[in-house]
Computed example of a mutant assay.
Amino acid sequence: MAFYKSISINNNTTAYFWKITEDFNTLFRAVQLKDTSLTRLEKMKSESHQKGFLAVRMLLQHLGYSDFDLYYDENGKPHLRSNNRHTEPVEVSISHSFDFSCICISTDSFVGIDIEIMKTKILRIAPRFMDTKHLENLSELDQIEKATVIWGIKESIFKIKNEQGISFPDHIFEDPFLLSDSRCDAELRFNNKIEKFDIQFYKVEDYIFVAALPKQ
């Protein structure tokens, strides 16, 4: 399948989605990879992970970038170089899960994203990363959805900060919210500092997509 859809987070920030229906060989033939990316791809043991990796490059090409514009810093955070089509500096975040790959590009803010398929197993691990009081008085389906949103909130904020020592349950906190809200506030309390974030979340088929932006 080609490009799936985009979601406007704000006037300067957009998330782009690729639904992966292609086989590995189709994706591999459709992208150009630099040597370091080819080495990373060859080391991946899961074909699902490989296809997610390649679909990210398909999205980049769809948007006028390429794998050669994408690089990672020493902490593993992705960045995009300017090119002939895109001269303005941008911030980028990347996520993929099973049938979806996603990138989010912002021209005026750091951004972190996460996309996760909803699975019942998240309820078993929820006490490890969140206050399970957030799940009280909900049906099992709503518990799964809300726990997936909360995981995505914490993962998205971590992607922005990417600092060693940050703990999901101990340092990242979301304000109470309803699933119908589609947004909430969250905080990172770490190293004697409090940083606030705007959160948006969406259902994309059987997946939850979350985007975090630092409050201006």
Rank of each mutant, 00 (worst) to 15 (best):
A186P: 03
T39Q: 15
K77L: 10
V92Q: 06
Y16G: 00
E145C: 13
A212Q: 00
E42W: 11
R189M: 09
A2M: 13
L38D: 11
N11Q: 12
P78K: 07
M118L: 02
P127S: 07
A147Y: 06
D185R: 13
I194E: 06
N137A: 14
Y16H: 14
I103G: 01
S101N: 09
T39N: 11
I153M: 05
L123K: 00
D67Y: 04
A55T: 05
D35M: 08
L179V: 12
V56T: 12
L80H: 08
H79F: 15
I94Q: 04
I122V: 15
R57V: 07
S95P: 09
I113M: 06
P127G: 11
L178A: 13
W18K: 05
F190Q: 04
K19T: 06
A211W: 01
K119A: 14
T14Q: 11
I20L: 00
S93D: 06
Q200V: 03
M44N: 00
H86G: 05
E163V: 08
R40S: 05
T107G: 10
Y202A: 00
L179K: 05
V31P: 03
P89S: 10
Q61A: 14
S93P: 10
M44F: 12
T132M: 10
S101P: 09
F209L: 08
F168P: 05
K34H: 08
N75M: 12
A212I: 01
A211C: 15
N137G: 03
S101Q: 08
K34E: 15
P89F: 13
A212F: 04
N75A: 11
S101D: 04
G152E: 05
S48G: 15
S182G: 11
F197A: 02
F168Y: 11
